[in-house]
Each structure stands twice: as C-alpha cells, then as structure tokens.
Amino acid sequence: MALTRVIAEHPLSKYLVNERLPHAWCPGCGLGITLGAILRAVDRKVREGKIDIKKLVLVSGIGCSARASFYVRFDSAHTIHGRAIPFATGAKLANPSLEVIVFGGDGDIAGIGGNHLIHAARRNMDLLVFMVSNLVYAMTGGQVAPTTPTGLFTTTTPYGNPERPINVVKLVASQNPNYVARASATHPALIEQYTYRALGMEGFRFIEVISMCPEVFGRHIGYNDPVSLYKAIKSKTRVKARPSLDEADYDWNHGWVLGEFIIKNNPGYLRTTGRWRA
C-alpha cells in the first residue's frame, strides 16, 4: 500500500476527502493518476460555473477502482459489484439536476455489470461512465477479467487465458450513445481532456481508461516493477484525434488506439422522457 505521505496541500484538495489520504492504492497503480485527471477536469468545469459541485455524484461498484468513491469530497456511493450503473440511473432519474458519474473496473462495468452497461448505452441514459481497464480482477487478487488479453497469465488462467477479450468500446458504440472514448493512465492529459468534454453532456457517455495494475497483473506476466509495466502499456498505445471504430481493436500484441470514437448530440433519455434539465 501507499508509501508516501501527503506533505503539502494537494492542488485538488478541494475535491478530496483529505482526512482519508493517503489512499489505499498500490504504488504505481494507474487509479490515482486517473482520478486526479478526472478531478482536474471537474475543477475546470466548476471554475467555469458549468458544474455545481453540490450536484455532482460519483457512483461506484466494488473493486480497487470503485474505491475512488472513498476519496471524493462530493456526494458518492460505494454500492455493490456490478450495479453502479442501475443505482446511478435511479439517482439521475429521481433527480435530473444531478450530474452522475459512474467509476468502476472492467470486471465491475463490463463483466458482472455488462448487461447494465449495454442497456444504459442503449437508452442513451444521461450518465458519464468511466471504466478502468487494468486487464484483471485486481481487488480479488489477479484473476482473469473479461478484458484480459488472450494468452496472458492470471491466477485463474495459470496456463494462459484461452478466451478472447471483450472490446467494450465497440460494444458500447454499437448502442449508439452520445460519447465513446478511450484513454490511458499513461496519458493523463487525455483523460482530463475527454472528461472535460463529456462532463455535462447529454445522453450516455463512456470513457475507457487503460490502466496499470503492477501489483497483481504486471507481476504475473513478467513486469516486476511498476515502471516496466507502465512503459509496456505506454508503448502499446497510439493516440488519434478521431479514430474510426474499425481502429478500436483490442489486442495485447498490437496495442490500443486512444481517442474519441463517437461524439454525438442525440437526445438523452431524460429529454426523450420529458425530464431533461440543463
């Protein structure tokens, strides 16, 4: 767990429950980087008067990623594994003035919660969903995830993962939501940029963040320190301004294209049901 101590006021301390820091994420984990980037985008929106921090809610399920709900100062809910999206949907429908963010791991969002993801995207539900793909079930100790690339070793695939990984960007895009992007914890500026765009937008917005789990993913596949895993992932990512969905392939050998795949302005669920409040 974290070795450092907070020594000066953090630039994002306004948005963090500082009393709960240092956080519990491992050194070299991509989650802190990801949350930091998201909060910087939030901060910009708040300072521009485009978001009322009192109306911002972060909903998570269960997993290392889901622990983000501990650390944000605004309203948050740490719910149950896979169910953050329906919980968030209920909150948003009940109070349309809320801006509701879902934050979870790939297992949480696309594994156990995969069906909810598809249907929220299909409804163009007014939610912003972050899925942190660390390619493994981290919290439970490194088991195979639906996003784990073929052939890789995890604790439940000791002979290599025989399955093919799910391509969540394509899956979500097939439901025609308003926004789909892929970023990586190796490129925090992109996370911030995409979040900034997606915050406050209408309809369903999905951002996948490729992330590093040096603790229970990297070590199983031969990256014995956080830096080597970080470098490996960084070398596998390519940034494109507006990539096509054909370029969204998901493959450990060829890596990932990062970028904004879909940006649309279709009416979201709240508008189509007459409840949209800008």
Binding site: T79, P86, T89, L93, N115, T273
Partner: peptide, 26 residues
C-alpha cells in the same frame, strides 16, 4: 413521478436504492 422498466430485477432494485438516495420515495 418516474416509472421505468429495467433490464432485470437486479437493476430495478438498485435503481430504486439510487432514487431513494436522491431523495424520493421509491
């Protein structure tokens, strides 16, 4: 009020909990 059909009962009850925390009777 809001009435919505969800993808299953799991989603339904979790949406109801979310709505309750958003301040309404659900």
């Amino acid at each position: 009020g809001v009435v919505a059909q969800f993808e299953d009962e799991i989603a339904s009850i979790n949406a109801v909990i979310g709505a309750s925390w958003a301040g309404v009777k659900a």
